[in-house]
């Protein structure tokens, strides 16, 4: 499916066109305001000096203007400075989200292939358990994670590490990856694979050479979804990685709000910066994400 594609619209009787046109444009304007006004407010706040955020009436333009809120995120690097925390959070977010995505795609699509192709008893049950594990709330597992990490597994020194974050993020999105990719593998005719095998390719070669290229849209969709999910995670660093070696951007922004001085302009700048990657993903790959999310609903 393709939500972004243009599509010819049914003709309407001429008489009613005018009023329904006006109504449609009024609603479009309303939705645009609802969508964009908060974003506009976030961006102008990030470009204001502090006095501009506590004035009444609030200036609805970025006055008094400054780039400083963004500049402090990258300059004056020293331990415990804001740029130190921001850059560490950025690094951790990038490392953890990327590693999670890669692991999920490798493990998840391998498992999905087996669950789509092999004739094996209980494969539907296994798929269902994976899917259910994906639906389990993080907050239901965070307490045992914490306790296991700091007590029985404390010898592994996992607390406050990116490794732990990656393991946990991976387990949370693996079920979704398996579910979506299983659908993609299942939609590829088995004859294609068999033809390759008749020509002498081994099963592994046929998987890598023939099947994987056909599932690129699915890999892209699940990869991006996984990336967005781990980029957004907050509760895991809150409980298991509150130090600069593991916290991510959401936790960094939250920590800004907990400071003695609650500086809206700095929070807004941090927010804009951490929203840029996911917004770019949605702008450029929106249709893949929709196709991934609808894989379980529209396609069946």
């Amino acid at each position: 499916m393709d939500a972004m594609a243009a599509q010819p619209h049914q003709a309407r009787p001429r008489r009613t066109i005018k009023w329904s046109r006006v109504g449609v444009y009024a609603l479009v304007l309303l939705v645009l305001t609802w969508t964009l006004a908060p974003l506009y407010f976030l961006v102008i706040t990030s470009l204001k000096q502090y006095v501009g955020t506590i004035a009444y009436p609030l200036p609805w333009l970025p006055t008094p203007f400054t780039w400083n809120n963004y500049a402090i995120m990258f300059t004056n690097y020293s331990p415990d400075s804001i740029s130190y925390r921001f850059l560490h959070a950025l690094r951790n977010s990038v490392i953890a989200s990327t590693a999670t995505t890669v692991l999920n795609l490798v493990f998840g699509s391998a498992a999905a292939y087996v669950l789509a192709r092999a004739r094996m008893r209980g494969k539907n049950a296994i798929t269902m358990i994976f899917l259910a594990s994906n639906l389990l709330p993080t907050v239901a597992l965070i307490i045992p994670f914490y306790v296991l990490t700091v007590t029985y597994l404390s010898g592994l020194h996992l607390y406050d590490t990116n490794t732990l974050m990656v393991i946990l993020y991976t387990s949370f999105s693996l079920g979704l990856v398996i579910w979506i990719m299983r659908g993609y593998f299942g939609s590829i005719p088995i004859e294609l694979e068999e033809a390759a095998r008749v020509d002498g390719a081994s099963r592994l070669v046929s998987l890598i050479r023939i099947i994987l290229p056909l599932t690129v849209p699915g890999l892209l969709a699940t990869g991006l979804l996984t990336f967005l999910m781990s980029w957004d995670n907050f509760i895991l660093p809150l409980v298991l990685g509150p130090d600069s070696s593991a916290y991510n951007l959401p936790f960094f922004i939250y920590s800004l709000s907990g400071q003695y001085l609650h500086l809206n302009n700095e929070i807004a700048a941090g927010g804009v910066l951490s929203a840029i990657p996911p917004v770019l993903i949605v702008l450029f790959f929106g249709k893949y994400i929709v196709s991934g999310l609808t894989a379980g609903s529209v396609k069946g």
Binding site: S257, G271, P278
Partner: peptide, 24 residues
């Protein structure tokens, strides 16, 4: 087409950023 893309944007905003934004 542009409208559909714009409407999608809030979903991409990280939850914590969304929280801070609505807090303001």
């Amino acid at each position: 087409r542009i409208f559909r893309v714009i409407v999608f944007i809030p979903w991409a905003i990280p939850t914590v950023v969304n929280a801070m934004l609505w807090g303001m």
